[in-house]
Design a protein around this nucleic acid. Structure first.
Length: 887
RNA sequence: GGGCGGGUAGCUCAGUUGGGAGAGCAUCGGCCUUACAAGCCGAGGGUCACAGGUUCAAGUCCUGUUCCGCCUACCA
C-alpha cells in the first residue's frame, strides 16, 4: 500500500460529503423494525424549530446523541434515532409575517386560511435547512422516519390527547389572568415569560376619601393600571388603617368610588401598607378580587393600548399612559412622592416585549394530577436524571407546578378541537368536526380559533413520532426510549411535560435516562446571543476546521455540570489531533501491506504486548465513560491513548522493526499488531470523529464495509487477552530510563544529534536483565551510541546521573560536562525529593497514623518512603562525586 | 425571597466512596530525527477563594464568610 493515497495533511471537506452520502445511500442509520431485533436502543431528537438555524446548543446536543447512537451500534444494538422538527408556532408565524410585511401585507389582510398555506409554503422551501445542517454535523438519524409536529399523524395524536384530557376534566377553559404579549398578540404560559430586573419607580398616590376628609396613600410601580382599580386593600391587622375599611375612596382621574377592603395578603411593611387592587391586570389582585367579589375593569387592551374604560386616556399606549397619568396626578396634587425602585418585569421569550398580565378566556391543563405520577417516576428510579443534581430542580418545579395555559391566539399550530354551538352555546370537544350540536341539534358550530401551545405537541413527541395513538410495532419496540439528551434550559418546558404526558397516555415513562448537558457559552462564559454579537456559527467552525475536530472539541469539553466555553482556538487544537491520527495512519500504511486478521501467538515483542494492553484499557475506559455519560473522560482517554501511547511510544519504538532491521519474522509480527491496533482504534474513535475514521478505515487493507458496521473491540472475543500487566510494568521501567536520559540531554543542552554513551547500574538482577534485553529499544529511543549494564561497577567519570526505580543511569559526559549545571540539576532534583520525603516522614512518625490508618495505606507510604530514600541517597552520592570532580 | 452551581497552574478546566495536585492550551529551552513544524524532545509554574471544624489524614466531609454565574418567585 502506498502512502500516496493519503495527503500529508487531512482535508475534511470532500471526505465529509462523500462519507455522509455513502452512509445514507447504504441506509446505515436505519433502525430495524422487526420483533426479532434484539438490544433495542432509542433516542428521540429534541426537535429543533423548523425556522431554526443550527447553533452551538444544537451542535453539542446532537453530537452527544450521535456519539451514543454510533457507540451503541458498534456494540451491536438496534438503534433508532428518531429525527424531526417542531412547528414553533409563534416563532414561525413571526417569520412568515415578517416576510408578508415585506410585501406590504399583514396576516389579517391575507386571511387565516391563506396565511397558513403561506406558512406551509415557507416550510417546504426553508424547513429542511436545519436538517441539512444536522447532516453536516454527521448526525446519524434515521432520516426516513423524520417527523414534524404538524404532520397529520402527530396532529391526530394532539387531538386525541386534548379530547381525552378534556373528558377527564384535566383540560378546562376559563377567564383568568394570563401573560399577554401585546406584540405577538397571544397568551403565553408562565414559563414563556422571562423576568428581568429593571430600574423603575415606586409612585405614592393619594386616593381621597369620598367625604373629602383625607385619604389613603397607595404605592405602585404601574400608575397607569390605577384606572382599572376597583378597591384599595389593607391588612386587617394594620392599626394604621383601623376604621378605614368601612369607608370609600374616590379613584382619582376616573372619579369612581371604590371600597377599602381588608385582606391578609397585604404586606404591612411594604410601601404605605395600602395596596391598590386591579383585578384585570395583576394576578394577585385577580385573586383578591375573587375573594371580595370585586369588578374587573380592563383598561389595557390586547393591543397594548388603553381601552374606553381608561376614559380620556383611551387609545394611548400603555407606557405613554403611565407618564400621562403621572402628570395628571401631579396637577391634581395627588402624587405624594416618587421613589426609585428596582423590580423585575416579565418579557415575551419570543420577542422581548414587556408582558401585560391580562384578563382573558383561555384553555388550561390541570397539571397537579399529572405531575404526581411524573414525580414518582423519578423518585422510584424509573427515569434517572443524569447528572443527579438536576433531579432536585425537577422536583422543585414539579411540586410547585401551576396550571398550564395552552391556548395561543395565533394561526400557525394545532387548532383547538373545540366547537361552540352558535345556537345554544354548547361546547363540543371532539376528534373530528361535529355535524350537529348534541344539545340542540343545531348545525352551526364554530371551531375555537385558538391554537395549542407548541410545547403541547412536543410533550407527545416520544410516542407521537412512533405512531401513537395506533399501537405500532415501533412503539412496542422502542418505547420507552433509552435516553433523552437535552439542555437544562428546557427541563421544564419539555422534559417535565413529556414525563407527564408519557406516563398518562403510555402508562410508562418516555425515557429511562435523561442526560442533561450544559449550555455552550462564549470564550468568556457569556451566553451566546445575537444581540451581544458573540455568537459562533457552528457551520463556520465546521467549514474552517472540519466536523470531526469540532465534534471532538464538544465532547472533550462536555464535562458534567459545567458549561462548555467554546472558542475557535480550542477547535483548532483538536484539529491537530485529527491531523495526528491522519498522519499516524499514513505512516502505518507505508508499511501495512495486507490485512492481518490474526495476532500471532507467543511471539509478540514487549512494545507489542504493551500497546495491546493499553488498547484494551482504553476500550474499557471508553465504554465505561460513555455508559456513564462522561463524554469528556472518554474523549480524554482516546486523546491520550492515540497521541501519547500509540504515536509517541509505540510507533517510535517499532520503527526499526518496520524498516526491516529486526528481520522479516519480527516485522511481520509487528505489522499484525500495528494493523490490529489501528483497526481497533478507528472503531473506538468512530463515535466521536466519524468522518476521518471512515476515510482511514477504507484505506485499511482487509477492512470491509463501513467502520460504522464493525464490532467494538470489547465484543470481539479475544481482547481481554490483550491485558498484560507484566508488559506494562516492564515498559514503565524502560520508558522511565529513556525519559531520564532525555531529561539529562534536555537539561544539559546536549544536541539531539549527539549520540550518548550510557551505563545503567542496578543491584537487582531482574532490572539488569530487562535493561539488557531491551537495550536496542533504549538505545534507539534515547539516541545512544552504547549502553552498558552493570551490577555496581565503578562510577564513570564526568557523568550526569538520573535514578529510575532501583537503577542509576550514568550519561557519560567526560570532557563535555558542565559541572555547575549538573550540580544545580541534581540539587534541584534532591530538594524535590526532600519535600516529598518530609511528607512521608511526618506520617510515619505519627503514631496515630500508624495505628489508625488502614494497613495498605501505611504500607504504601512506607514503600514510598523507601524508594524516595533510595533515590535520594543515590542522587546525593552522585552529587557529592560531581562536586569532588568539579572542585 | 427561595434554590442550585462554581472559585484548583498565566488561560480553560479534570480530579466518582477522604490517603500520590493533574491535563490541554499558553510560556521557556533544544531539535527541519525519512508519518505529522498542525510536529518531536525536555523544562518551569499552584497556600486547591477565605476562616474555622471533624479526622491519624481534607481539593474532597461539615459550618461560616466572601466573590461570580444561573434557575425560580405574585411583595405592590
Amino acid at each position: 500500500m502506498s502512502s500516496d493515497l493519503l495527503d500529508k495533511a487531512y482535508e475534511p471537506h470532500d471526505v465529509e460529503k462523500r462519507w455522509y452520502d455513502f452512509w445514507e445511500k447504504e441506509r446505515l442509520f436505519a433502525a430495524v423494525e422487526s420483533e426479532n431485533a434484539k438490544n433495542r436502543y432509542s433516542i428521540v431528537i429534541p426537535p429543533p424549530n423548523v425556522t431554526g438555524v443550527l447553533h452551538m446548543g444544537h451542535a453539542l446536543n446532537n453530537t452527544l446523541q450521535d456519539i451514543l447512537c454510533r457507540y451503541r451500534r458498534l456494540r451491536g444494538d438496534n438503534v433508532l434515532w428518531m429525527p424531526g422538527t417542531d412547528h414553533a408556532g409563534i416563532a414561525t408565524q413571526n417569520v412568515v409575517e415578517k416576510k408578508l410585511a415585506g410585501e406590504g401585507l399583514s396576516r389579517h389582510q391575507v386571511g387565516r386560511e391563506k396565511f397558513v398555506e403561506a406558512v406551509w409554503e415557507w416550510r417546504k422551501e426553508y424547513g429542511s435547512a436545519i436538517i441539512n445542517q444536522l447532516k453536516r454535523l454527521g448526525a446519524s438519524c434515521d432520516w426516513d422516519r423524520e417527523r414534524f409536529t404538524m404532520d397529520e399523524g402527530l396532529s391526530r395524536a394532539v387531538r386525541k390527547v386534548f379530547v381525552t384530557l378534556y373528558q377527564e376534566n384535566l383540560i378546562y377553559r376559563g377567564n383568568y389572568i394570563i401573560n399577554w404579549c401585546p406584540r405577538c398578540h397571544t397568551a403565553l404560559a408562565d414559563l414563556e415569560v422571562e423576568h428581568e430586573v429593571h430600574d423603575g419607580y415606586l409612585y405614592h398616590i393619594r386616593y381621597p376619601f369620598n367625604d373629602g376628609n383625607g385619604g389613603v396613600v397607595i404605592a405602585t410601580t404601574r400608575p397607569e393600571t390605577m384606572l382599572g382599580d376597583t378597591a384599595v386593600a389593607v391588612n386587617p391587622d394594620d392599626e394604621r388603617y383601623h376604621g378605614v375599611s368601612s369607608r370609600k375612596v374616590v379613584l382619582p382621574l376616573i372619579n369612581r368610588e371604590i371600597p377599602v377592603i381588608q385582606d391578609k395578603y397585604v404586606d404591612m411593611s411594604f410601601g404605605t401598607g395600602a395596596l391598590k387592587i386591579t383585578p384585570a391586570h395583576d394576578p394577585n389582585d385577580f385573586e383578591i378580587g375573587n375573594r371580595h367579589h370585586l369588578d374587573r375593569v380592563k383598561v389595557i387592551g390586547d393591543d397594548g393600548l388603553m381601552t374606553p374604560e381608561a376614559g380620556k386616556f383611551e387609545k394611548m399606549d400603555r407606557f405613554q399612559c403611565r407618564e400621562a397619568v403621572v402628570e395628571a396626578l401631579k396637577k391634581e396634587d395627588l402624587l405624594e412622592k416618587i421613589d426609585p425602585y428596582q423590580h423585575s418585569i416579565g418579557h415575551c421569550y419570543r420577542c422581548r416585549t414587556i408582558i401585560e398580565p391580562n384578563l382573558s378566556k383561555q384553555w388550561f391543563v390541570k397539571t397537579k394530577p399529572l405531575a404526581e405520577k411524573a414525580i414518582q417516576a423519578v423518585q422510584n428510579g424509573n427515569t434517572q436524571i443524569v447528572p443527579e443534581i438536576w433531579t432536585k430542580t425537577y422536583f422543585e418545579w414539579m411540586n410547585n407546578i401551576k396550571d398550564w395555559c395552552i391556548s395561543r391566539q395565533i394561526w400557525w399550530g394545532h387548532q383547538i378541537p373545540a366547537w361552540t354551538c352558535e345556537n345554544c352555546s354548547e361546547v363540543v370537544v371532539a376528534m373530528d368536526p361535529p355535524d350537529t350540536c348534541p344539545a340542540c341539534q343545531g348545525n352551526t358550530l364554530k371551531q375555537d380559533t385558538d391554537v395549542l401551545d407548541t410545547w403541547f405537541s412536543s410533550a407527545l413527541w416520544p410516542f407521537s413520532t412512533m405512531g401513537w395513538p395506533d399501537e405500532t410495532q415501533l412503539l412496542k419496540m422502542f418505547y420507552p426510549t433509552s435516553v433523552l439528551v437535552t439542555g437544562f434550559d428546557i427541563l421544564f418546558f419539555w422534559v417535565a411535560r413529556m414525563m407527564m404526558m408519557g406516563l398518562h397516555f403510555m402508562g410508562d415513562v418516555p425515557f429511562k435516562d435523561v442526560y442533561v448537558h450544559a449550555l455552550v457559552r462564549d470564550e468568556e462564559g457569556k451566553k451566546m446571543s445575537k444581540s451581544t454579537g458573540n455568537v459562533i456559527d457552528p457551520l463556520n467552525v465546521i467549514d474552517t476546521y472540519g466536523t470531526d475536530a469540532f465534534r471532538f472539541t464538544l465532547a472533550a469539553f462536555a464535562a458534567q455540570g459545567r458549561d462548555v466555553k467554546m472558542s475557535e482556538k480550542r477547535v483548532e487544537g483538536y484539529r491537530h489531533f485529527i491531523n495526528k491520527i491522519w498522519n499516524a495512519a499514513r505512516f502505518a500504511f507505508m508499511h501495512i501491506d495486507k490485512a492481518y486478521n490474526d495476532l500471532p501467538d507467543g511471539s509478540l515483542s514487549l512494545v507489542d504486548r504493551w500497546i495491546l494492553s493499553r488498547l484494551h484499557r482504553a476500550a474499557v475506559s471508553v465504554s465505561e465513560s460513555l455508559e456513564g455519560y462522561r463524554f469528556n473522560d472518554a474523549a480524554g482517554v482516546l486523546y491520550n491513548f492515540v497521541w501519547h501511547e500509540f504515536c509517541d511510544w509505540y510507533l517510535e519504538a517499532v520503527k526499526p522493526t518496520l524498516y526491516g532491521k529486526k528481520g522479516a519474522e519480527r516485522q511481520k509480527t509487528t505489522l499484525s499488531v500495528l494493523w490490529r491496533v489501528l483497526h481497533d482504534t478507528l472503531i473506538l474513535l468512530h463515535p466521536f470523529i466519524p468522518f476521518v475514521t471512515e476515510e482511514i478505515w477504507h484505506q485499511l487493507p482487509g477492512a470491509k464495509g463501513s467502520v460504522m458496521k464493525s464490532t467494538f473491540p470489547l465484543d470481539a472475543d479475544d481482547t481481554s487477552l490483550y491485558q498484560d500487566l507484566q508488559a506494562e510494568s516492564t515498559m514503565s521501567l524502560i520508558t522511565g530510563i529513556i525519559t531520564g536520559i532525555r531529561n539529562i540531554r534536555g537539561e544539559m543542552s546536549i544536541s539531539p544529534s549527539l549520540s550518548l554513551t550510557v551505563s545503567v547500574h542496578s543491584q537487582q538482577t531482574s532490572t539488569r536483565e530487562i535493561v539488557t534485553h531491551y537495550k536496542d529499544m533504549i538505545m534507539n529511543l534515547a539516541r545512544l551510541e552504547s549502553l552498558s549494564v552493570e551490577n555496581s561497577g565503578r562510577r564513570p567519570k564526568g557523568a550526569a546521573t538520573s535514578v529510575v526505580e532501583d537503577a542509576t543511569i550514568f550519561v557519560h559526559l567526560e570532557g563535555v560536562i558542565d559541572f555547575t549545571q549538573e550540580i544545580q540539576r541534581l540539587g534541584k532534583e534532591i530538594s524535590k525529593l526532600t519535600t516529598e520525603l518530609n511528607m512521608a516522614t511526618k506520617k510515619l512518625r505519627n503514631e496515630d497514623f500508624l495505628e489508625k490508618a488502614p494497613k495498605d495505606v501505611v504500607d504504601k507510604v512506607k514503600e514510598k518512603y523507601d524508594s524516595l530514600m533510595e533515590k535520594q541517597q543515590k542522587l546525593q552520592n552522585n552529587l557529592d562525586k560531581i562536586k569532588e570532580l568539579g572542585a
